[in-house]
Design a protein around this nucleic acid. Sequence first.
DNA 1: TTATTATATAGACAAACGTCTATTTGTCAA
DNA 2: TTGACAAATAGACGTTTGTCTATATAATAA
Lengths: 103, 103
Amino acid sequence: MKFDPVLFAKAIADETRQKIMGECCCNWLSVSEIVEKVGFTQPTISHHLAILRDANLVKIREEGKQTFYSLNQEYIAVCCGQIMVKFAPETSVTENLLKVINQ
Amino acid sequence: MKFDPVLFAKAIADETRQKIMGECCCNWLSVSEIVEKVGFTQPTISHHLAILRDANLVKIREEGKQTFYSLNQEYIAVCCGQIMVKFAPETSVTENLLKVINQ
DNA sequence: TTATTATATAGACAAACGTCTATTTGTCAA
DNA sequence: TTGACAAATAGACGTTTGTCTATATAATAA
């Protein structure tokens, strides 16, 4: 998956999607469970999940009738790292990040 | 400045603004210089600069008739770090980042 | 003062976006 | 095969966003 900083930013640039991301950050949730936790209609949640999926920000596991989603933490870390390298290259935080990555 | 992950994401979620950010990442540019480099009208560039300013992503220096902008790299690094901690806490990259920050 | 230059602000307009209801698709149980 | 449930898709609708032109504000030069 090629990194696109605008696509990534657009995907996370919404209150509802960030709520969804928070809910399925460290665990797998079905769509219905996310609907319950976030509190919009099922189609609205599916719509947001599709945007997150298209940006590669969620992992998917189908199981019978249900579909489970979990945050793609590795890729999110990569995206944030790339943005730091691109827009904050002269900071110590980014320099340390690069040191760790290139070692 | 209180960190707001949605405000930050919205601010960088636009092609034109990311071009502007790239241009004034490591140097100070006047509005006219940015207009020249990015290629939209001056009011459009001013509009985007206002959004970046409201999100604390640019530093400003007024000098006579001109206003110079430069990326606020430190704050951008902080924002990316916060997003990593929030949405990618279980990755090694984030763990290293936290180690560096807390030392 | 008046003219010029640099930037910001106001307002218009089309495109993109977030939400909803209605419907479709796919899976499982009876 | 029928019925029920889970999720995705389609389409409508109001809101937000990005761009433009026109204008206002502020600083400098003549």
